[in-house]
Simulated assay, not measured.
Amino acid sequence: MLKIHVVSETPFVMKGQGVHTAFVEQVALLKEKNDVQVVVNEEGWGDVMHCHTYGPYYFWKGRKYKGRRIHTAHVIPDSIKGSLPMWKYLFPFVNWFFKKVFSYADVVIALSPMVEEAILALGVKSRIVKIYNPVLISKWKRTNENRQKGRELLKLSGDKKVILGVGQLQSRKGLEDFLDIAEAIPEATFVWVGGRPFGKLTEGIERINNRIKKASQHIYFAGMFDLAAMPAIYAAADVLLFPSYQENCPLAPLEAAACGMPVVYRDIREYSLLYKFPYLKAATTEAYIALTKKLLHEPEFYRQGLQISEQLIKQFDQEKIRQELIDLYREVVGKD
């Protein structure tokens, strides 16, 4: 039986971000059936290595897998824009480093067409295949029990509508835009869930902290939660705003859509290339405010938003994506 070695540094350093979620959920997905064996990090060795991160652990673990290394490109050079201070000066080094990361792999999984473009732009010669992040729909399904639990976790009271934001506390994620939108809609409660994996190295940390301190009382910053709590956190909300300026194949909006709520994306090229079905989008803060108010106050438009979310997640069917991964592993190892 084919044995897959799944590797990620996120359990040791950064659990509160999308890469860790993707790693955890892929392991769970692979273990759903008995057609392959799965070992994780230090649990042993396999026939093929599939790594989700790009630190020293990736290079160390990969030393025994020449010709059988697979890397999922969750992060590309553009991901540092608005994430780290002085990113413009770091960019040449980041480009050089990620070329090394992707070139070390025999196969690089591009999560979206935009990721594929970024890898090719670096001059990487490794084989590139496009496989999306899967959405484990049953995990995120909304229940009344989860909604009550989520509202308790977020310390919410009353029956006000809840507008959720999920992501790291940094400008790349559109946090300051979220604050502008929230200030314009005092009739709802706005909650942002997420922390700072990079700590004091986060771009614009003082500016953002000052904005958070001055936020109105209907805006709440809840901090980070364990992955196990996130189905309840999503269920506590009514709408997700996702104003991020750069993403690859983000999980948070798909998780929210699977939880049964409208999602409003930023109107950027990444999504127009990625998504096969329509999605709610806003190009400006004013457009975000208008869309959010419409979702809050027009029940028929809200129902349309729910239908859009339901359709959107069909592209990320877990069984289809699982089979694509298994086929790739077998091809790389040379086993039927």
Rank of each mutant, 00 (worst) to 15 (best):
G16N: 15
Q17R: 10
Q17E: 13
G18C: 09
T21L: 05
A22W: 01
F23P: 02
F23N: 03
E25F: 11
Q26V: 12
V27N: 01
A28E: 15
L29D: 06
L29Y: 04
L30H: 00
K31Y: 02
E32R: 09
E32Q: 08
K33I: 00
N34L: 07
D35M: 11
D35R: 08
V36L: 14
V36M: 13
V36Q: 05
V36K: 08
V38R: 06
V38A: 12
V38W: 09
V38I: 11
V38K: 04
V39D: 05
V39M: 09
E42I: 11
E42P: 01
E43A: 10
E43G: 11
V48G: 12
M49A: 12
H50K: 05
C51S: 15
C51L: 04
C51V: 14
T53V: 07
Y54L: 01
Y54V: 00
G55D: 14
P56Q: 12
Y58I: 03
Y58C: 11
F59V: 10
F59Q: 08
W60I: 10
K61S: 10
K61F: 10
K61W: 03
G62R: 03
G62N: 05
R63L: 14
K64T: 05
Y65D: 03
G67V: 12
G67F: 05
R68Q: 08
R69L: 07
I70M: 08
I70A: 04
I70L: 08
I70F: 08
A73P: 09
H74K: 05
H74S: 07
P77W: 05
D78Q: 14
D78P: 04
D78K: 11
S79K: 08
S79H: 15
S79N: 13
I80P: 00
I80G: 00
I80T: 03
I80C: 01
G82R: 06
G82E: 04
G82Q: 03
S83I: 06
L84I: 15
L84Q: 00
P85C: 02
P85F: 01
K88D: 13
F91G: 00
F91I: 07
F91V: 02
F93I: 12
V94Y: 05
N95L: 07
W96L: 14
